[in-house]
Simulated assay, not measured.
Amino acid sequence: MRHTDTSDQRPPRKRAVVTGATSGIGAAIARRLATEGVDVDLVSHSQRRLERSAARIRDSAPDAELRLRRADLSSLADTAKLAERLTQPTPPDIVISNAACTVDPAETTPEGITRMLAVNHLAPYLLLRSLVRPLGDRPARFVVVGADPGTLARLPVDLDDLQLTRDRHRGPFPSLRPALGYGRTKNMNAMFVYAFAARLHGTAITVNGAHPGVIRDTGLGRNDRGLLRLLGRTMGLFPMPGPDTGADTPSWLATSPNVAGVTGRFHVRRREVPTAPHTTDVARCDRLWEESARLVGLPPKL
């Protein structure tokens, strides 16, 4: 009897990109995908942290295929270069935009962009948009890691102040201002998901948002000061799940057949949930899309 070699008939391995992949939830997402047999591109601004993260992943998945992608997501120029590199040799099947920061709203980048706006919103906007044309007709899943929609309902995006200049002066406690700016940029994430999904209608690309939960050891509070640091330490006295729990919903959205074709939705604990009306209003989402295009130097139309 002649035996047929079926090794070449196996489906090709998926390739995922995870930003902020060297700590917290991002590292847990990357490790989870790698253990499931997905090739993973790890994105971080630090080569040293990339190498350490890759070593930890290989402890769990010795055969993991990993690429280390050093990029500063606070820089629009660096983000654009990253998008170009990610298309070689072919664009990824999955992109999970997880990188985020909480810093003083007054902190700006050399390009004159508020750092939180650049990292938390404009980087995923530019990166994911830049991959659409190279993907063409290929299917892909984009996942944007957001934050708690209930808490964020009280922090609508000020469309006349995307650079968070007013948050630099809001409230009597300067140490709490980073939380205000962070919340608004996370609402931008949800609005971006809805606007992007509408513009991708009819394509094989899906885009969804996810709240990972209130998770310990994310590294987001490393720059906290004053009352914000005290609040973080107080929360740390209570039991909270770790990064592996936070990785669950974003990873599930990226790989599960149960959500194949689902797009333009926001999920918490694998369940679709509504977000605040100010994030779903089409006119507001369109305006954010257009202002973001202007800031990153892209045309509004895909």
Results as ranks from 00 to 15, higher is better:
residue 259 V to H: 08
residue 177 R to T: 05
residue 247 A to D: 05
residue 4 T to V: 14
residue 82 L to A: 09
residue 252 W to G: 01
residue 151 T to W: 15
residue 68 L to P: 06
residue 15 R to K: 05
residue 114 T to K: 07
residue 220 L to A: 02
residue 203 T to G: 03
residue 167 D to H: 13
residue 217 D to H: 12
residue 50 L to V: 10
residue 293 A to C: 15
residue 18 V to D: 04
residue 273 V to N: 08
residue 211 H to I: 07
residue 112 G to E: 02
residue 20 G to A: 08
residue 218 T to H: 04
residue 72 D to W: 00
residue 197 A to Q: 04
residue 54 A to N: 05
residue 181 G to V: 05
residue 38 V to G: 03
residue 228 L to F: 12
residue 178 P to W: 09
residue 230 L to Y: 01
residue 94 I to R: 00
residue 64 A to G: 03
residue 43 V to D: 09
residue 209 G to P: 10
residue 201 H to Y: 09
residue 195 A to C: 12
residue 299 P to N: 09
residue 91 P to Y: 00
residue 111 E to H: 03
residue 247 A to T: 09
residue 90 T to K: 07
residue 35 T to P: 01
residue 86 L to S: 06
residue 89 P to W: 05
residue 285 C to N: 10
residue 193 V to M: 02
residue 280 T to C: 08
residue 44 S to D: 08
residue 272 E to G: 00
residue 147 A to R: 13
residue 62 P to S: 07
residue 12 P to A: 12
residue 69 R to T: 01
residue 52 R to G: 12
residue 230 L to I: 11
residue 280 T to L: 10
residue 55 A to R: 11
residue 50 L to P: 10
residue 31 R to H: 11
residue 169 H to I: 14
residue 110 P to D: 02
residue 220 L to V: 12
residue 40 V to F: 02
residue 191 M to D: 06
residue 264 G to P: 04
residue 133 R to Y: 06
residue 26 G to R: 02
residue 31 R to V: 01
residue 228 L to R: 14
residue 81 K to M: 09
residue 91 P to H: 08
residue 80 A to S: 07
residue 212 P to L: 04
residue 112 G to R: 11
residue 76 L to E: 10
residue 257 P to Y: 07
residue 11 P to N: 06
residue 106 A to R: 15
residue 73 L to Q: 15
residue 87 T to K: 03
residue 231 L to A: 14
residue 181 G to W: 06
residue 194 Y to T: 08
residue 273 V to Q: 14
residue 53 S to Y: 00
residue 254 A to N: 10
residue 275 T to Y: 12
residue 102 T to N: 12
residue 148 D to H: 00
residue 274 P to C: 11
residue 264 G to H: 03
residue 103 V to D: 11
residue 235 M to G: 03
residue 151 T to G: 14
residue 273 V to A: 03
residue 301 K to G: 13
residue 227 L to P: 04
residue 211 H to E: 02
residue 161 D to V: 11
residue 15 R to N: 07
residue 83 A to W: 11
residue 113 I to Y: 04
residue 158 D to P: 04
residue 180 L to S: 05
residue 115 R to S: 11
residue 258 N to F: 06
residue 79 T to R: 11
residue 195 A to R: 10
residue 66 L to E: 04
residue 152 L to F: 12
residue 74 S to I: 06
